[in-house]
Each structure stands twice: as structure tokens, then as C-alpha cells.
Amino acid sequence: MQLHIKNMVCDRCILAIKQQLDSTGIPYNKVNLGEVELAQEPSPEQLDTLNKNLTAIGFELLDDRKEKLTEKIKNIIISLIHRNEDNNNKKLSAILEEKLQMDYHYLSNLFSSLEGITIEKYSIRQRIERVKELLTYNELSLSEIADQMEYSSVQHLSQQFKKETGLTPSRFRELKENIRKPLDKV
């Protein structure tokens, strides 16, 4: 049995979910972004307690098939961008089709209808948040960040960054109060 959980965006989220599963006595085999593979089916009481505990810390159990699919799309994008998963220079549409075994046009329409933005726009927002993170670390040059984030040029990165944030990457780096959004709020 699998559970699908909304708002999981990082390794700390996985840890938080594991802690909640342990505290409610629900045995599991594996926890990934957005999904938990259970070792056995939990009782209705355990599931209710888990749901309440997850809601209290900003997560949500998903029942709806379309919401589950939308969350899978988000998690694939987050993994590609924030975990530096190699995509072999494939287009995002091809990656999503391959991983989800569904037509991209359907996925795109579904995502837009539930999230109010396109998959492409969501992907751009995630990339910009990752760029903000890399700029905050101040370890890489803008050129190195553009390469790592697979932008065609520093200029393209700078234009997209300014369009999303209102600041150039250089100006953002200069600011001491680098305001970043939590990934689940992007």
C-alpha cells in the first residue's frame, strides 16, 4: 500500500514523515518525496492520527488521483532541480512522459488546472529558488551557476532571474537579507 503526501520537498520532509509514521506505529518500507510505501495497511485510527499529525506540521495526505499525479509532477521537478539529478539533456516534457508513462499534454493541462500555473512556470520558479540558494552560498560564479542549472548563457539566467525576482543575480547576492521562499510555497 502507498500513501501520497503533499508538500514534501526535501530530505528533512522525508525525516519528518518517518518520525510521524514511527510515532503512530505505522510500519513502512520506504519514504520518498511525496510517497510512502507501507509495510502493511494501517488501521483507520492510525491513519486518522497520522493525517492530523501531518496536517499540524504542514503536510497533507492525498486521496484524489489527480492531486496525487500533480504532486508527483512537482516532486520530479524538485528532484531534477534541487538534487541535481542527471536528465541527459532531455526536455522536461520527455522526462515527465517517461517517468509517469502519460502524455505530456494531459499532464500539462491537469497541472495547470489544479495549480493555476503551467508546469514550465513551476519549473522556472524552482530553478530560480535553486539559483538563489547557490547565490547565497557564494561559492560559485554566476557562470558556474548558469552551467550547473543548464542555462544556455549567463545572460539568459540573469534575464529569467530578474523577471522572477525583480533583481539581478549580482544585486541579489549583494543583499544581506537574501529572501528565499520555502520550496512548498513556490
Rank of each mutant, 00 (worst) to 15 (best):
R125N: 15
F111V: 06
E85Q: 14
I119W: 02
D103H: 13
L100F: 07
S113M: 11
E129N: 05
S143W: 04
S79C: 10
V131M: 02
E85R: 10
Y104I: 05
R65C: 04
Q159K: 13
S158A: 15
R127T: 12
R171C: 01
K99R: 15
K162S: 13
R127M: 14
S158F: 06
F111I: 02
F111G: 10
K132G: 04
Y104R: 08
K66M: 05
R171L: 13
R130L: 06
S170T: 14
N109I: 01
K132P: 01
K99M: 09
Q155M: 13
N138M: 01
E133K: 08
D86A: 06
K99N: 09
H82F: 11
R130M: 14
T165C: 12
S113T: 10
Q155C: 08
R65V: 07
I95K: 04
S112V: 00
I119F: 02
T165E: 05
D103T: 01
N109W: 01
N89T: 03
S93Q: 10
E164Y: 09
V131C: 06
S152R: 14
I76W: 03
S152G: 12
E139F: 14
S143R: 13
N109L: 11
E115V: 08
F161I: 05
E129Q: 14
E139T: 12
K163Q: 14
N87L: 05
I124A: 10
H82V: 03
T168E: 11
Y137P: 00
I81F: 07
Q101V: 04
T165Q: 08
N84D: 15
I119N: 03
S93G: 00
N87Q: 12
I81G: 08
Y106V: 01
H82A: 11
E85S: 03
K74S: 11
L167A: 02
Q148L: 11
V154D: 09
Y151H: 11
D86F: 06
E120K: 13
K68C: 12
E115T: 07
Y137K: 13
L114K: 15
L135A: 10
F161V: 03
Q159R: 14
L100C: 05
L167W: 06
R171G: 00
N84R: 13
E139L: 15
K163P: 03
E115C: 09
I76F: 08
E97W: 02
A146L: 10
I95N: 04
V131L: 05
L135I: 08
I77W: 04
N138R: 08
S170I: 14
N75I: 00
M149L: 14
F172A: 10
R173W: 03
I77S: 08
D147I: 12
V154G: 04
N84L: 13
H82C: 13
M102V: 03
D103E: 15
E97L: 05
I119P: 01
K74T: 02
I76K: 04
S170L: 15
E71P: 02
Q126C: 13
E150G: 01
R83D: 14
P169D: 09
K163N: 12
K90G: 01
V131Q: 01
S108R: 13
E129W: 02
R83M: 10
L92I: 11
L96D: 10
K132I: 05
E115N: 12
F111C: 09
T165N: 10
